[in-house]
Amino acid sequence: MIETDRLTRCYGPLIAVDALTLRAEPGQVLGLLGPNGAGKSTAMRMIAGFLAPTSGTARVCGHDVRKEPLAAKRALGYLPEGAPSYGEMTIREFLVFMVRVRGLDRDIAFRRFDEVVMRLELEDVLEQTIGTLSKGLRRRVGLAQAILHDPPVLMLDEPTDGLDPNQKHSVRMLIDAMARERTILISTHLLEEVHALCNRVAIIANGRLLADATPAELEARSRYHGAVSFSAAGSGVSREMLARIPNVASVEVDPLDGRVTVFPRNSQPILEEVQALLRTQNLEVSEIQLEQGRLDEVFRQITTQPRGAQA
């Protein structure tokens, strides 16, 4: 479990993290989402114990990072931003160092070592020097280090940054597999990642928590939520007729490809009415879609509103 309690961090006059209060339970994958410079990494660094909070505190599995830093760190697996590691070591040497420095029991350590190496597909590169590895491999080494001691809490700062689509997929599978009994906090600015991984999202900007909801709840805030969009041959469809359907708020036509989007009023269901109208008009519809809502739009809407507009 991760809790932050009015966690605050100032750099001189700049407030990087502003009274952030969050809570993630076992089984949850909480995504910290925010534009660059929002304070995601600073918040994580405080939870990891690298930075001291200016005020407020954080707890990892109930251990206060200010009062019991070592107990908190023992319960935590952390992948810092950019996955730093000692470039002159081979992967094996680096992971053995991690086993030693964490004081893991020998028998358990051997088993975990093999398991982690297998899971992250590092068997063939164990003897390579980390400094010569590709960005993706280095990220996997960082992940291996973070899960080596089987921590109940995992904190990953941009875990898939710099990975190719296949590697992204396998890292997501890995996180997904570990999510069941653990608390996982990941930071990202990739919206697709939120869909693929998180069951809760905390949006922060300028160091402040602006939204804390499930991805579906956030999508419901989009004006696209429940909208119907379709492509039809010819330009026969009349915007007026669509707009006359009850519960339709507005109709937009994409000037480039002519795709029509019909927006509902107050999230009322309109799919059937729109389909019925298209049938009576005998329009040849090549494709029709019920929109779930667009996270990117909600993200923009939440993070670009003036400070203090939303508590």
Binding site: L70, K73, L76, Y78, P80, S85, Q145
Partner: peptide, 11 residues
Amino acid sequence: SGTLELLFSLP
């Protein structure tokens, strides 16, 4: 090189 962050996140 940023490894300080890693080092200080260890117990």
